Amino acid sequence: MNVLFDSDDVQYSGEMTKLELVADSGNTVQRGFCPTCGSQMYSRTITGPKVPIRVRAGTLDDPNIATPESIIWGPSAPDWAPFPEGMPVHVAGPGSELIGSAD
């Protein structure tokens, strides 16, 4: 689960291992990892349209700071993924086409 923030509002301290790759969208995405345990901390688009940084909810001091508002990349979710009833489902990332809401 990701929590989306404006990139300017997120700061990390300490070392971070970074990996860059080209996503299916053609945008370059950077992923940050803890160099000690390997946990992924965030992903962000560094070339392409400006989109929010995606911070892994489990890495936050208080993961309850945000309530889910929508599901992104809905068609890519595994069959077992629980979608809260009535939650908007997007075909791709934030702001992409809506494909309906969860039943």
Rank of each mutant, 00 (worst) to 15 (best):
T47P: 09
V29F: 08
V29A: 07
R44A: 07
M87V: 15
W73V: 06
H90I: 02
V3I: 10
L4P: 06
E97D: 06
A57V: 14
P82R: 14
P49K: 10
R56N: 12
C37R: 14
N2L: 05
E20M: 09
A57F: 07
W73P: 13
R31H: 08
S39T: 12
F5H: 05
Q40N: 03
C34F: 01
P84A: 00
A102Q: 11
A102C: 14
D6W: 02
I53T: 14
V29S: 09
C37H: 14
F5I: 10
W80R: 09
I46L: 05
L60Y: 15
A102K: 12
G74I: 00
V51R: 09
D6N: 03
I72T: 11
R56Q: 06
T47Q: 15
G93M: 08
S39A: 08
D79A: 14
P94S: 04
Y42H: 12
S96K: 11
M41A: 14
I65V: 11
I53H: 10
V3G: 04
Y42L: 04
I53G: 00
D9W: 07
S96E: 04
T36D: 13
P82D: 05
M1A: 06
S13I: 06
V51C: 03
G93I: 00
S76H: 12
A102H: 10
A57L: 09
A92P: 05
A77T: 13
D9A: 12
T28L: 08
C34K: 09
I71D: 05
G58F: 00
T28M: 05
F5L: 11
V22M: 05
L4C: 10
P75H: 07
N27Q: 06
G48N: 03
I72V: 13
G86V: 02
S43W: 03
T36C: 08
P78A: 06
I72S: 03
P63R: 11
Q30G: 08
P82Y: 13
L60N: 15
T59K: 05
Y42P: 02
P88C: 00
I99A: 01
